[in-house]
Nucleic acid binder design. Sequence first.
DNA 1: CCAAAAGTGTTGGTTTTACACCCATGG
DNA 2: CCATGGGTGTAAAACCAACACTTTTGG
Lengths: 225, 225
Amino acid sequence: MADARGTVRVAVDAVVFTIQQDQLKLLLIQRKNPPFQGMYALPGGFIHPAEALEAAAHRELSEETGVKDIFLTQLGAYGAVKRDPRGRIISIAYLALIKGDQRLKPATDASAAQWLSIHQLPTLAFDHAAIIADALKRLHYEIQMTTLASQILPSKFTLTQLQHLYELILGRNMDKRNFRKWIKELDLVQELPEWTSGKHRPAQLYRFKISSYQQLGDRVNLQLI
Amino acid sequence: MADARGTVRVAVDAVVFTIQQDQLKLLLIQRKNPPFQGMYALPGGFIHPAEALEAAAHRELSEETGVKDIFLTQLGAYGAVKRDPRGRIISIAYLALIKGDQRLKPATDASAAQWLSIHQLPTLAFDHAAIIADALKRLHYEIQMTTLASQILPSKFTLTQLQHLYELILGRNMDKRNFRKWIKELDLVQELPEWTSGKHRPAQLYRFKISSYQQLGDRVNLQLI
DNA sequence: CCAAAAGTGTTGGTTTTACACCCATGG
DNA sequence: CCATGGGTGTAAAACCAACACTTTTGG
């Protein structure tokens, strides 16, 4: 083992998705300091000695972007030797899908957080492009196999909104009737005695039966990735 | 950040499964030193400063158990603050499924490697019981959704052997005809012009078309977990 | 009365499951 | 000739994919 102390540092990064203006967006910060000064990167930073990994991800996210009180799930550890020019830094990445109306922290002299469309990402710092690619695959899996969708929708929503969410994330259109059949069989949502009002025919509102994150039963729809 | 250097260390652990005597077994070492002296634990240890995570897992596995040249896939990062009484140690766990005839290193004064049946595990050091529980779930997924099975079987095998493998790992029996249909549709294996010989009717031998690890197409059988 | 979005079932094809008998070998 | 494991097909059920029209509202 010799004297390996201090030569390896551990960081966390958060890949946070939302939907805004009918687009899947990603929360990024623009780096104000080297390395990769001026480039975009995932929010994240070094863990504290007595802080759990997920707690560090929450803290960094809050410090750098203002986003807090969200559900994070671990994506994986990224540990290539030269992934960070500052030295040996291993990063544990976390994934989230959150409501699009979270207020972002105004830009500081250290960072500027913003939502960028997943289809127009700039060049990213470190190995963050690879992390994001993994996160997208994982998101496709999670949206179908877990209740992750409940994290992004308002407490009351219409089935059309829900379908729209799936379509945006999976990148394909779905049949309205089949989608509704599927959702009802999953037994995820519950009708409310409320309807939207607006220009058109009112839509019935629903809510999630379970608001926490959990694995759905076997044999979901699934056309993974 | 202050002076966090040296206060967090990074380790790797390997959850290595095999099948011996019709049982799913796990490669464990008996700890000869504190903490958890005398208890069983996953093989693993601290990473070196200029060593990739997976390389560290390979090295530790080889040093502690003699097992080498195997395929490892990342399971996840375990980082609870008090998971190791020696201080703040984060571990990245790896998963493998390997042939059961690997020669284990003889016991040294630091460790003694052995295969233990998954159904009779002793109390384990650290949070290794939780890591193993996660690894088992993941193994169920991987065996169905990837070519991981190719890592454990000999280069030539019978379909009955293959089925037996799936049954042991998934913990349920499968129908012989349906299993063969499924395997043939996956297009994973190739008939060889060879047959076993022995007491009974010879069985045709097969080999994997692809010997490397890869994701199978969407819509595999799948009854996850 | 028009435009826009909400809502609702059926059918055909595919996939999955359940199920039983004959075959080849060595002893 | 017996015991053991190898090998094969079919039919019913479940599941999935494709598809179009009517309803309600506001303007």
